[in-house]
């Protein structure tokens, strides 16, 4: 009888109809569902966006490796990317609300910030001549590093809210970009295009397959 009472008081709160095990499993379930729903939301639109921008990086940076002055192509790719992203988000997003608009504003603010620094850092009028031949390619690579790291910084921050997977993705691509800039300048754009863009496409496919 004493043993039974001791056993009962170890597992059950005397003022509650719920046992300690039930309470513990309910708390675990709450955590699990929280992660699951955040992942489902991410998979709803983020998987497509990662694959889209991964493909854009592959095309854009690979073109930059082989074609001089490929920034004109970038303008087209970015505009197409933004338009498709807007369509994907507005049609496929599983959530709606005021904070969602703020995500767009955050991205625009970030792009504006990066564009401002590009304008500030590139010497005005230095697009031709011997000075450009000497410093232009390095400057262009630095600008590419700036854009890639700014985008990946956004992924790191988004990962803190959604899932650490995105933070790791952002951090790995940032490190890979800096390594390529320092140690493989000859293949820099191809490295970012195939490595970085490929990582984005693969991550999008992973999210699409396992998080939905």
């Amino acid at each position: 009888m004493m043993l039974c009472h001791a056993e009962y008081s170890m597992t059950t709160n005397p003022i509650s109809p719920i046992s300690r095990e039930e309470a513990r499993s309910a708390l675990e379930e709450i955590d699990r569902v929280g992660i699951q729903v955040r992942r489902s939301i991410a998979a709803g639109s983020m998987a497509s966006m990662l694959m889209l921008w991964g493909a854009i990086w592959i095309v854009g940076f690979s073109a930059e490796q082989f074609i001089a002055r490929a920034y004109r192509l970038w303008l087209v790719l970015d505009l197409v990317g933004l338009a498709v992203t807007f369509l994907l988000v507005s049609r496929r997003s599983p959530i709606k609300g005021p904070s969602y608009g703020r995500i767009w504003i955050s991205w625009l603010a970030l792009f504006g910030y990066a564009a401002f620094w590009c304008w500030l850092l590139v010497p005005q009028g230095m697009t031709h001549g011997p000075e450009w031949t000497a410093y232009g390619p390095v400057l262009e690579r630095k600008m590419a590093v700036l854009w890639v790291t700014v985008c990946m910084f956004a992924y790191v921050v988004m990962g803190l809210w959604l899932d650490r997977f995105l933070s790791w993705l952002g951090a790995i691509i940032t490190v890979a970009t800096l390594v390529a800039f320092q140690f493989a300048p000859g293949y820099f754009y191809l490295w970012i295009g195939i490595g970085g863009g490929g990582a984005l496409v693969a991550s999008g496919a992973f999210i699409w397959r396992y998080w939905r």
Binding site: A26, V33, G34, V37, I95, S99
Partner: peptide, 25 residues
Amino acid sequence: LRIMSALVALQPRIQLDFRTLGNTL
């Protein structure tokens, strides 16, 4: 409990689609 866990996991005033909730749970 699972429905409330899912909805409370979102920021206030964010709304979740019915189908996504059903599929997730």
